[in-house]
Every structure is written in structure tokens, then in C-alpha cells.
Amino acid sequence: MADLDPAEKLKELASTMASVEAVLDLDAKNTEIAELREQSADPELWNDQAHAQAVTRKLANLESIVNKVGAIRQRLEDAGVLFELADAEGDADARAEADRELEALRADIGELEVRTLLNGPYDEREALVTINAQAGGVDAADWTQMLQRMYLRWAEQHGYSTDVYETSYAEEAGIKSTTFAVKASYAYGTLRGEHGTHRLVRISPFDNQNRRQTSFAGVDVVPVVEQSDHVEIDESELRIDVYRSSGPGGQGVNTTDSAVRITHLPTGVVAACQNERSQLQNKATAMGMLQAKLLERKRQEEAAELQELRGEGTSSWGTQIRNYVLHPYQSVKDTRTGMETGNTGGVLEGDIDPFIDAEIRWMRSQEKDG
């Protein structure tokens, strides 16, 4: 594409855009938008707060996609005019501006193209993210907290709402585990490729001899359950513990035992919530988290059975997926896609979209080959 003139580049982008529009099925989306607007106008909708919020979030998401497609279409037309005027007047500044807009259009259309790949059964759901410290002692706990910040900053940059349900702080520094929700449509489809082990190599700030330390943290991403999901849970198979929420250094956050931890005894799956003052609210949230984790476990088991029937190997998504090296050089590299950058600071501040886009394309290619 680099050797093509601007008109040909715009023609190729317009062709890609037409393909994206066909997959997105804008007519169907506009029909759904009209239906959701009708629902949102019903004064009785808010009698069920959770359902009302789901309706308004879905409506906002669909309107955002349709509006974005329309805006990009208009920009493609405007870019063509901008190039013609710049060339006709020999205006170097206008030509440079047109070139920048062309690159911006390519990036935005590429982002939309990735969205069309999110067509899995749960991809449009919100996401529940759990991060656990693994090998590496205090450095692993610190690394877990760094990853939590990375994902929360990423969500903030995109305007996605988040809710931290549980954080278990380590004694010296960092956190042993955390669970938070990313409340945005397609959050699960977008983030599910982040599932796996993340490895950090750096000079340990906790080692008085300034030795290099390797530490690990595991990221788990599951879709948030909806009312239509069927997840059977026998209450006799649950252990429910209540305890006092705590902050950094073990200090008490709540003065009552309002935090709730639920363990599903047959599987060992655990869900905990401490962000509400009410024990009943924390229990309800933890139960929802447990259902989400059991739903994803069921999905993974079904996928494994299908792979076995096909004679395929097991999935490696739960293994080490990304290396973050801060010493002796600066690099973040994904072991599956090969995506790499030296901008480690940017990545740790939430600039992970290039990695996410690459892994979405990689996952789809793996599923297509399968």
C-alpha cells in the first residue's frame, strides 16, 4: 500500500470499510437500536435496575458503532477532497495534513475490522478479570498490582466503567489477588486473549543487593453471566465465609464482617467480594462472580472435549503469554503473536491495544484453522 498514490490508498480503505459494514450489518443494528430506544422510553423499565442498565449500555454501544461507521465514511470522502485541493494548490502543509488523516483513517478502520472478529457466543459480554500473584514472592505481589493498574488505566482510557470487587493485599507490598469487572459491551471478547501467565523481569526494588528478579502473575478473564444463562449451583456444595475487609498493610477498611468469600467445593472455584458495606450485597455479587467463573469453566471443558474429538492438542492459552522485560533492556513481547514494543512505560500505563488487536486476530486464525 506504501507504493500506491493517495487515491488508490483511499480506494482500498473504502473497500475494506465496505467489507466491515457488511459484517457489522448496519441495517440489523439500526433495527435493534429502534427497539432498544422504545424499551428505554418505557417508564417501567427502571423497575428492574440491572435490566435497565443492560438495555441502556447496549443501546449506547450500538449507537456508538453506527455513528463511528458513519463518521469514518464521511472522513473518507473528505480526505479525497483534501488531497485534491492540496495537489491543485501545491500546498505542502495541506498535503501533510491529508497524509496524517489517511494514516488515522487506516488505524480507525483497522480497529473496526478487529471488532468484526468478536463474534463468539460470549464476546459481547462484560468481563470479569481476576489477577493472582504466582511465583516470585513480594515481587510477584507487586507485579500483580502493576497489572491491575495497567488494565484499569486501559479501561479508563477507553471510557469503560470498572468495579473492583475484591483485593487481597500482601503483607510487605502489592496484592495477592484482585477481581474487577469491566462494564462495557464486548469487554470479554476484547480481553479474553489476556488470559494466561504474564512474566516480569526487572531489578527488584525489594532486593538490597539490586539483583534481577523474575516474577509471574496469572490473569483470568471470564464473561459476566446474564439472566438467560443456566448455571446450576447446589447450595449444599458451597462454603461461605464472612470476614472483615482489609486495606494495604492489613488495616481494616470496614469495621464489620461484611466481606464474603464463596467456595464451590466440587471444583475449588472461589469468588469473593468486599466492595459493598452490606454483607448481603457482597454475597449477591460474589454469587454472580462464581456463576461467571463456573460458566467459563463449562465452556472450556466443552471446548476441550471438542478438541479431543477432533484429535487436537489442548489449548495453550493458560500458559505464559507475554514477557515484560525492564532490565537489562526494555521490551514487552507476546509469545503467541510476536507483537513487541520497547515502550514498556506506555504499556504499563494501559497502552495495550496493539497487543489486544494482534491476539484477537491470532485467536480467530487459530479457531478458523481448527
Rank of each mutant, 00 (worst) to 15 (best):
P248L: 15
A272H: 02
G252Y: 05
R261H: 01
I240Q: 09
E302W: 08
V325F: 11
T285K: 12
V219D: 05
L326C: 14
G311K: 13
V269H: 04
G313T: 14
G288E: 01
N282G: 01
K293I: 00
D257N: 10
E237Q: 11
S245K: 02
R239H: 08
V222M: 13
M287N: 00
E296S: 00
D207P: 15
D234R: 07
S316I: 13
A284V: 04
Y324V: 15
P266L: 00
R244G: 05
S246T: 10
V221E: 00
R211S: 12
V260R: 01
D207M: 06
D234N: 10
W317M: 06
Y324S: 11
A292G: 05
I233G: 01
Q213Y: 02
T263I: 02
S315V: 09
E237T: 09
N208Y: 13
V219Q: 06
T255I: 03
V221H: 02
P205Q: 13
I262A: 02
F216P: 15
G318V: 06
R322A: 10
E296T: 00
D220E: 15
S215F: 00
N282H: 09
E226L: 12
T267Q: 03
A259C: 12
L238N: 03
V231F: 12
A286M: 07
N210K: 15
A286H: 08
S246L: 02
A304E: 04
I240F: 07
S246N: 04
P266K: 04
D220T: 13
L294N: 05
Q274P: 07
R322G: 07
R212Q: 11
G318T: 07
P205Y: 14
Q274N: 09
E302S: 09
H327P: 03
R322Q: 07
R244V: 05
Q209R: 12
T267M: 01
R244T: 04
P205R: 09
E308F: 12
V269S: 06
E276Y: 15
I240W: 07
T256H: 09
G311S: 10
L280N: 11
N275M: 03
S245A: 15
S236Y: 06
A292E: 02
K298G: 08
E301I: 05
V325D: 13
R239I: 09
S236Q: 14
M289Q: 05
S278Y: 15
L309G: 14
A217D: 03
E296G: 00
I321W: 08
E312Q: 13
L290Y: 02
E276I: 07
M287S: 01
D257M: 03
R211P: 11
Q300D: 02
H230M: 12
A304N: 04
A271V: 02
R244I: 03
A217T: 05
L326E: 14
Q274D: 12
I321F: 08
W317A: 05
L238I: 01
L294Q: 06
R322E: 09
S236V: 09
G288C: 03
E237W: 04
L265R: 08
D234G: 12
L294E: 10
R277P: 05
R211H: 11
N208V: 13
R239Y: 08
V253G: 06
T319Y: 13
A272E: 02
D241M: 05
V253M: 03
N275R: 05
R211Q: 14
A217S: 15
S215K: 12
N210M: 14
L306F: 10
E301G: 03
A259K: 01
P223W: 14
K298E: 11
V242W: 08
Q281Y: 12
V231L: 10
R310L: 13
E226A: 15
V253L: 02
